[in-house]
Computed example of a mutant assay.
Amino acid sequence: MSVAIVEGPAILIGYTYRLDLEAEAPLFPEMADIIAQVRLKPSATDILATLTTADGTLMRQSDCLLSLVIPAPDTANFEPGSVVLDMARVDVRPALPLGFFLEIPVMLPVTRGLS
């Protein structure tokens, strides 16, 4: 597996996080059912958030573009440091990992506690 480090936005605790992922290959076909689990580290048993195409937290934009959203109630439970996630297509058997891994920094925002 090759590794590429790309800078992007950090997750701010208590705020909704949005990120667009663009792949060189068509990883996100029109009828794909995709799930991502957010964990503290790959070996962690606790799932901090689950993102799916079914609930709209993963949104296919094209065969090569996917938008992800981690809702504020989920990020409110994160701690400063980082979280990891990868994705799998579950509309095929066996489930198919999409072949990438994200580690996203998590930061405590200065402006917080707003309702």
Rank of each mutant, 00 (worst) to 15 (best):
residue 8 G to D: 12
residue 9 P to K: 15
residue 9 P to A: 11
residue 10 A to L: 02
residue 12 L to H: 07
residue 12 L to M: 04
residue 14 G to N: 01
residue 15 Y to T: 13
residue 18 R to K: 11
residue 19 L to H: 08
residue 19 L to K: 08
residue 19 L to P: 12
residue 20 D to K: 00
residue 20 D to T: 02
residue 21 L to E: 10
residue 21 L to H: 05
residue 21 L to F: 03
residue 23 A to Q: 12
residue 23 A to H: 11
residue 24 E to V: 13
residue 24 E to F: 15
residue 26 P to I: 14
residue 26 P to S: 11
residue 26 P to A: 15
residue 28 F to Q: 10
residue 29 P to M: 09
residue 34 I to C: 05
residue 35 I to S: 15
residue 36 A to T: 01
residue 37 Q to D: 04
residue 37 Q to C: 12
residue 37 Q to M: 05
residue 39 R to S: 00
residue 39 R to F: 00
residue 40 L to T: 10
residue 40 L to G: 13
residue 41 K to T: 01
residue 41 K to N: 02
residue 41 K to M: 01
residue 42 P to R: 11
residue 42 P to F: 00
residue 43 S to P: 14
residue 45 T to V: 11
residue 46 D to W: 02
residue 46 D to Q: 08
residue 49 A to P: 05
residue 51 L to C: 06
residue 52 T to E: 00
residue 53 T to I: 04
residue 54 A to G: 03
residue 56 G to I: 10
residue 57 T to A: 09
residue 57 T to Y: 04
residue 57 T to W: 03
residue 58 L to F: 09
residue 59 M to C: 06
residue 60 R to E: 06
residue 61 Q to K: 04
residue 62 S to F: 07
residue 62 S to V: 12
residue 63 D to G: 13
residue 63 D to N: 15
residue 63 D to E: 14
residue 64 C to P: 01
residue 64 C to E: 07
residue 65 L to H: 08
residue 66 L to P: 04
residue 67 S to Y: 05
residue 68 L to G: 14
residue 68 L to K: 10
residue 69 V to A: 13
residue 69 V to N: 15
residue 71 P to I: 13
residue 72 A to K: 06
residue 73 P to V: 07
residue 73 P to Q: 06
residue 73 P to H: 06
residue 74 D to H: 03
residue 74 D to L: 03
residue 75 T to K: 09
residue 75 T to R: 07
residue 77 N to H: 02
residue 77 N to F: 00
residue 78 F to H: 07
residue 78 F to Q: 06
